[in-house]
Design a protein around this nucleic acid. Structure first.
Lengths: 198, 198
DNA sequence: CACTAATGTATTCACTGTAAACTTTAGAGC
DNA sequence: GCTCTAAAGTTTACAGTGAATACATTAGTG
């Protein structure tokens, strides 16, 4: 039955994916994350990962890529549901921030370093942006889609990042939803009052 | 003349500050940043830093604190200058993002990890937020100051962070200013058009 | 001028990322 | 079925790291 501890010593079968899984798991569990520890977890020698990743950064890049894809599918679910919402951007941001709070360590990895090192990673993050742009285009006709999508992404990411770093004082995970909606509402409201004075 | 290589071996005089300086310098120069390397740079034994910082994280926290104070003074200059600007928040955000671009490595350190570990660091970042709140209060009367300041900070930080990570595709340091102003403008404009449909 | 606390040093340990050389296995071609 | 080769994994080794411990030097106070 068990295929895990069968005696075929070499050829794990799917080491690459197993390393990514274990890496994310350990990171999120707060366990010390090192190449050796990941290899140990998977039950393989400490240099085996080098057959699949040229160095540690590339493993991290692969983990980050997976994170972006997860995030993307979460956002797609929200987009599928929002039938003519009054606040489509804030809805999306809410799901975005919730993902970050649910996987804080991976989220930090995703945004902790430039992603010029890995094409897959870059395209995965670009797809997330594309999703935001799509929501903007259909939800805010007449607006500059690129500019507004950039603003929306930055605002969501900023809120997520500041919250994870404990810089949104007095905001627990519970009050975060309100804070996100409040931030969008405040900025939009400021736009309204500005229109009357120009 | 030289006080640097005078024969007083022990008692550097101001090791703590020297370590912070050297640490920031090496970080920003892209040099490998380790406790030992910093100690070497300052010309002191590899365990000497432990007399002033309990561990590496605390040195980093002190460096981050210095970063926040620098950022604060930059923002204060901008605030002093903006006499009735039409876009006070965007002005502030511009200075904020410019600081991040000017000290990318330190900026990443400032926001890379929770700052619950260090009181000084926490209060330094809180003071930056206070500055933003002040601008909001005087520039946007009638708006929720806390909510709008949070939104402004998050938007600025998000833009800075995404840019540093290379996720704002097709935006060099040159086009960044326009991107920042564009993001604020787009969000405010979306607020205007929303007011006509509610 | 002696004594004590502050400051810096020397030594050591477990751990990390990674390079190099070796071994085992899976599967293609005869 | 047998061999040969490339892929996948192992062993060993090395330099660098954060940190703990024990020791040495100095600055100032009494």
């Amino acid at each position: 039955m068990s295929t895990a501890d069968s005696p075929r010593a070499h050829h794990h079968g799917n080491l690459r994916a197993a390393l990514i899984d274990a890496g994310i798991g350990m990171l999120e569990a707060g366990a010390p994350f090192s190449l050796r520890a990941v290899a140990r977890e998977v039950g393989v020698s400490q240099t085996a990962p080098y057959r699949h990743f040229p160095d540690k950064q590339r493993l991290e890049a692969a983990m980050a890529t997976r994170g972006f894809r997860d995030l993307q599918s979460r956002l797609e679910v929200v987009i599928g549901r929002q039938g003519g919402s009054r606040t489509p951007l804030a809805d999306l941001a809410l799901a975005y921030v919730r993902y970050a709070v649910g996987s804080p360590a991976l989220y930090r990895l995703m945004f902790g370093q430039p992603c010029g090192d890995d094409d897959e990673r870059l395209s995965a993050s670009a797809e997330v942006f594309g999703l935001i742009e799509q929501v903007v285009a259909s939800g805010y006709p007449g607006a500059d889609p690129h500019g507004l999508a950039t603003a929306g992404w930055a605002l969501a990411h900023g809120l997520a990042s500041l919250h994870l770093d404990g810089k949104l004082l007095g905001t627990g995970d519970a009050g975060l939803d309100a804070r996100v909606r409040g931030a969008f509402a405040a900025l939009l409201a400021a736009g309204q009052s500005a229109s009357s004075s120009s």
